[in-house]
Simulated scan of single mutants.
Amino acid sequence: MTALVHADFDPSTGTVSYVVHEGPGSACAIVDPVLDYDPKSGRTSTASADRLVAFVQGQGLHVEWILETHAHADHLTATAYLKGRLGGRTAIGERIATVQGVFKSLFNLEPGFRPDGSQFDRLLADGDELRVGRLVGQVLHVPGHTPADVAYRFGDAVFVGDTLFMPDAGTARCDFPGGNAATLYASIRRLLDLPPATRLFMCHDYPPQGRGPAWETTVAEQRAGNIHVHDGISEDGFVAMRTARDATLGMPTLILPAVQVNIRAGELPPKEANGVAYLKIPVNAL
């Protein structure tokens, strides 16, 4: 079966969320959904997620999986909200436990928070299969941006998470805890060894001036034209470029609120005695 792909772009965070399905009335998977968050007021909202709900319900789809490519630093996930609205099981790469351990310490989270991935319904290893109706997905472990990144391959469609951007935007940063530029290079080359016509779907797009948002490309297009990692770029050259570039980048605007929510599979921290949930901001820790 050929996977049909519905994309939803969130301009506030540059994130693209996807619904993967066979057609009206079929099973589906949702990949990397966004929970809207206003950092000025600390309020969440669900306009982005509700667009996915409307598409799923309008097509008569049945949600089998809500998939995360990793614990994102640039947006909050709507996984928990969508599971409550649409059902389905949640999944992420098994190395999420490593990321949870780092951030449990950074945020000094409550003793009851377990850094073992148990917040998700399934932890995925490299080579695992996911069934979505008649579609069969394969999990590809693609670390480098973080230790836990995975990509999802459904036939000729691959959801690459934070590994590649569009060819004119390059590749993801590697300076988060556990990130490594040489590891990312190996992960990217694994993706670019897939057949040339393979469709690659980006998790984010930060378009250069002069073009609008875009999120679909191919292996052939990336190998020919990615500004950071086209054919002919060596590992040493990539690592030198990526390391120098990362040193100039500021932290993502939403990294502190986002990670706290995303390592909990989209749940907010437990409410305190006054009935309010709080997100922590560690001072002088990053």
Results as ranks from 00 to 15, higher is better:
9 F>L: 12
10 D>L: 03
11 P>M: 13
13 T>M: 12
17 S>L: 05
21 H>T: 06
23 G>A: 08
29 A>L: 12
30 I>T: 06
34 V>C: 07
35 L>S: 11
42 G>M: 11
42 G>W: 01
48 S>E: 03
54 A>V: 10
55 F>E: 00
55 F>L: 00
58 G>L: 00
66 I>L: 12
70 H>E: 07
78 A>H: 08
79 T>I: 13
82 L>A: 09
82 L>G: 10
84 G>A: 14
88 G>W: 05
88 G>V: 14
92 I>N: 01
100 Q>E: 03
101 G>N: 07
104 K>N: 07
108 N>C: 10
118 S>W: 04
123 L>T: 03
123 L>G: 02
130 L>V: 05
135 L>C: 04
136 V>C: 05
137 G>H: 03
139 V>W: 02
140 L>K: 00
141 H>S: 13
144 G>M: 08
144 G>I: 09
146 T>N: 09
148 A>E: 15
151 A>Y: 05
156 D>G: 06
160 V>H: 00
160 V>L: 00
161 G>R: 00
174 C>N: 08
177 P>M: 02
178 G>R: 07
183 T>C: 06
192 L>P: 02
192 L>R: 05
194 L>D: 11
197 A>I: 06
198 T>Y: 13
200 L>E: 10
213 P>M: 14
217 T>D: 02
226 N>K: 04
229 V>Y: 02
233 I>F: 04
237 G>D: 15
237 G>E: 15
245 R>E: 14
246 D>G: 15
246 D>N: 14
253 T>Y: 11
253 T>A: 15
255 I>H: 13
256 L>F: 03
260 Q>W: 04
263 I>V: 09
266 G>S: 06
270 P>I: 05
274 N>L: 12
276 V>M: 07
277 A>Q: 04
283 V>I: 10
